[in-house]
Simulated assay, not measured.
Amino acid sequence: MRPGNKNFSELDLQGADFSSLDLSDAVFSNSNLESANFEGAELSNADFEGADLSKAKFRDANLEDASFRHVRAINIDLSQNDLTNVELNHGNFTLGQFEYSELNGKTIFGINLYNANLQNALIGKSMFVNASLVDSNLCEADLRQTTFYKADTLLRRRLLIARAAAESRRGQGHRASGARYVPNKPVRVGIGCSGPVAAGSLA
């Protein structure tokens, strides 16, 4: 099914089912899409700027070049998606689900990932600027060459604790992060839940 009119902006579409539809180039700006289902949908170049996407489901959707700028997306499900070319700047993704998603090589500004689940996500070579990741789950996430610039204080503290924990396991057969801390300079750290993980940096 390919909807003819793809302008869905400023509409109340709470709970709508868009699963498996071709919605490429669709415009959903400033719409209420709470609990909407987009699983398996074709959403390349779709525009969700300013929309409410709380509890919306996007698993296995094609989101190439889609925009989630300034969205309110509490508890959104973006797991198992390629988000490499998705615009996420200044979005509120509190409690968002990003497990096994790919965000490699991105620069993201002002994103709120409070208590978000990024377990096993691929975030290598990315830069997070003014991001909030307080209480986020980065267990087993790939953070190689990732930079958190002007990261929130609690994230900085958590990364350093994780680094110390990795070093304490050095004599137990675990690979330590090789981290070091220099005030006001990048900090290389390891993050994870129960074992060696990739290194990221703080600036």
Results as ranks from 00 to 15, higher is better:
85 N>Q: 08
88 L>Q: 09
3 P>L: 03
83 L>R: 08
200 G>C: 04
149 Y>Q: 12
117 N>M: 04
119 Q>A: 10
180 R>K: 14
174 H>P: 00
174 H>N: 06
104 N>S: 09
144 R>S: 03
173 G>D: 03
189 V>C: 11
159 L>Q: 10
79 S>D: 11
197 V>S: 14
44 S>G: 01
46 A>L: 02
159 L>N: 08
58 F>L: 02
176 A>W: 01
140 E>Q: 10
80 Q>D: 12
194 S>W: 02
167 E>D: 14
23 L>N: 05
116 A>S: 15
172 Q>I: 08
194 S>E: 10
199 A>Y: 00
148 F>Y: 13
187 V>W: 02
82 D>L: 01
186 P>K: 07
41 A>N: 05
155 L>F: 15
188 R>I: 00
187 V>N: 04
35 S>G: 04
20 S>H: 07
8 F>R: 07
2 R>E: 09
183 P>R: 12
141 A>H: 00
35 S>M: 04
16 A>Y: 09
175 R>H: 12
62 N>C: 00
112 N>R: 15
23 L>A: 05
71 V>K: 09
36 A>Q: 06
105 G>I: 00
139 C>Y: 07
75 N>G: 15
57 K>P: 09
176 A>P: 00
103 L>N: 13
87 E>R: 13
129 V>N: 13
23 L>W: 01
39 E>R: 08
30 N>D: 12
184 N>H: 12
62 N>Q: 02
60 D>M: 05
138 L>D: 05
81 N>W: 02
11 L>K: 15
56 A>Y: 01
55 K>C: 02
190 G>H: 01
86 V>T: 15
147 T>I: 08
151 A>G: 15
199 A>H: 01
191 I>H: 02
105 G>K: 03
46 A>W: 03
154 L>N: 11
147 T>F: 08
88 L>C: 14
48 F>L: 13
191 I>Y: 07
171 G>K: 04
133 L>V: 15
35 S>K: 13
115 N>P: 09
19 S>Y: 03
71 V>W: 03
36 A>E: 06
142 D>I: 02
118 L>S: 10
26 A>R: 10
74 I>Q: 11
98 F>K: 11
174 H>T: 06
122 L>S: 12
139 C>G: 10
139 C>S: 14
34 E>G: 06
70 H>T: 09
164 A>S: 08
162 A>Y: 04
26 A>F: 10
145 Q>E: 14
130 N>E: 14
79 S>M: 08
148 F>G: 13
85 N>C: 03
144 R>Y: 00
28 F>V: 11
96 G>V: 11
148 F>K: 13
26 A>D: 12
80 Q>H: 14
90 H>T: 05
114 Y>K: 15
188 R>E: 01
26 A>W: 06
111 I>Y: 04
109 F>P: 01
159 L>H: 06
192 G>V: 00
157 R>H: 12
202 L>W: 07
188 R>K: 02
141 A>D: 00
189 V>P: 03
49 E>V: 03
14 Q>V: 01
70 H>R: 14
170 R>G: 10
50 G>R: 03
199 A>F: 00
10 E>V: 10
130 N>R: 15
77 D>C: 01
96 G>L: 09
143 L>E: 06
75 N>Y: 11
88 L>D: 12
179 A>K: 00
45 N>E: 05
137 N>K: 07
86 V>R: 03
141 A>T: 00
1 M>Q: 09
129 V>Y: 10
47 D>P: 13
196 P>G: 13
191 I>S: 05
165 A>H: 10
